[in-house]
Write a protein that binds this DNA or RNA. Structure first.
Length: 423
RNA sequence: GGAAGCUUGGCAGAGCGGUUGAAUGCAACGGUCUUGAAAACCGUCGAGGGUGCGAACUCUCCGUGAGUUCGAAUCUCACAGCUUCCGCCA
């Protein structure tokens, strides 16, 4: 959520900044709601003040056993009017907060202007795609040939399309990858390991910005007759840990990491990436979240991105870092780096991590603050995948495939796997 | 799943219809004293919002939501959470 004062002070500038994100801010609508709010609120508070002082008067008179009937009749009037105003005010507030909660975050100054992913900016590259001297297979064929250790049919049998079952060494490699990522972030990058719920309430989804605009992307379930949601990313539970909290200055920065499954409905992606494990309803991800002082958040984004990159480097997987252009930057984000890993079978780089600076956009929604110089100030939140485990598995399998269909285990994973190759 | 008790400011803990946004203690912050620190003493000390150039004035919030009342932290109802006991069970 944006600071409403920003809209009050300089709405034209905000409109322009948001237009870079392909969002059309309805200025007339905002001005109308604000004017209405002001009118109602001033009247309402005047009456409330009157009610409060009259009530006190009545109390004083009654305690002296004196007559208060003339004030009481006046109060009836006040209360009748007040009821109407309070109702109108509530309606106005609902409309205003609905209006505000649908406005995306403003892109950072350093974000290149652009419409879509074709205008994203490549920042740097690591590694060189391997030159295969044989005809390569994709992970689906490789997994199938390896005794169906990646089994899509079983996934369909149990749950439908976009689900899969892993077995034996591939299942272990999947587990080991997550383990390696967690260990790296905890031991080398100073993150605190967290274990969090996979089912969260509406407040949490609103806090990180998935509600109200993106409800259809989550799996909604029922818990004790109230709405609950499967997490689409550990960003949701991790970031919401600071909801309605006033942190101490020395608490910052908070750096947390968790390995969780992620559930996505993938509504609206029919036909896209239908083959394989790239786009599925359930996948594992190791997620990093940082809660930082607002002055340090830009540096924190660079740091976080490097943390994610270090996993790809350790696995020796070729990748590139893309700075998303304004039009491709997500709703909540002010600035996002995507890490794209080389997928040989697709002869291209595919997203494997997204590292974002949310500035105070989420903190304002969830009221996460820090006490600084005796004043409370919103924190900045950041998150990044470090990494998406399923896609990392795909990348390892495809990049490390051998002519006989076996998979060489990356050096750093061998002590975890207890073997050098899967065959 | 059943029963009882509880839910107040950073923490502890009063208040149980009327000048209460909330006593008191601790913590925190500022100051006096001191070479420095501790102790002692003095002072400050919940959050969010509105009108106004400003001074200032004012509203909302005592788990959440509804209700009773001229007036609710205080009464009623529903829901949630916590604690304890019983039952069941990974």
């Amino acid at each position: 959520m944006l600071d409403i004062n920003l809209l009050r002070q300089d709405i034209e500038t905000v409109k322009k900044q948001l237009s870079y994100k392909k969002f059309d801010l309805d200025i007339a609508r905002f001005n109308f709601l604000e004017l209405e709010r002001k009118n109602i609120q001033v009247q309402m508070e005047e009456l409330q003040a009157k009610r409060n002082s009259h009530s006190k008067q009545i109390g004083i008179l009654k305690s002296k056993q004196e007559d208060a009937s003339h004030i009481l009749t006046e109060m009836t009037d006040i209360n009748n009017n007040l009821q109407v105003l309070e109702h109108e005010f509530q309606k106005n507030q609902n409309e205003l907060s609905d209006f505000l909660s649908h406005i995306p975050n403003i892109p950072d100054k350093s974000v290149p202007l652009g419409e879509n992913e074709t205008q994203n900016q490549e920042i740097r590259r690591f590694g060189v795609p391997r030159d295969f001297e044989f005809t390569i297979k994709d992970h689906v064929d490789l997994g199938g040939a390896l005794d169906n250790q990646i089994d899509f049919e079983l996934g369909v049998k149990l749950s439908g399309s976009r689900f899969y079952v892993l077995k034996k060494q591939i299942a272990k490699l999947h587990r080991v990858l997550a383990q390696f990522m967690l260990d790296t972030h905890i031991d080398k990058h100073g993150y605190t390991e967290m274990y969090v719920p996979y089912i969260v309430n509406k407040d949490a989804l609103f806090g990180t910005g998935q509600l109200p605009k993106f409800e259809e992307e989550s799996f909604k379930i029922n818990k004790n007759d109230t709405d609950a949601y499967l997490i689409a990313t550990a960003e949701i539970p991790l970031t919401n840990l600071i909801a309605n909290t006033i942190l101490k200055e020395e608490d910052l920065p908070i750096k947390m990491v968790a390995h969780t499954p992620c559930f996505r409905s993938e509504a609206g992606s029919y036909g896209r990436d239908t083959r394989g494990m790239i786009r599925v309803h359930q996948f594992d991800k190791v997620e990093m979240v940082q809660i930082v002082d607002k002055d340090k958040s830009n540096d924190a984004l660079e740091e976080l991105t490097h943390h994610a990159e270090s996993i790809l480097q350790a696995l020796n997987l070729p990748y590139r870092v893309m700075l998303l252009c304004s039009g491709d930057t997500g709703f909540q984000s002010a600035k996002t780096y995507d890490l794209e890993v080389w997928i040989p079978s697709q002869n291209t780089y595919r997203e494997i991590s997204s590292c974002s600076l949310m500035t105070d956009f989420q903190a304002r929604r969830m009221q996460g603050r820090v006490r600084k110089n005796n004043k409370n100030e919103l924190v900045h939140t950041l998150n990044g995948s470090g990494l998406a485990v399923g896609r990392t598995l795909v990348a390892v399998i495809e990049n490390y495939q051998n002519i006989d269909g076996s998979i060489t285990i990356p050096e750093v994973l061998r002590k975890y796997m207890g073997c050098d190759v899967i065959r």
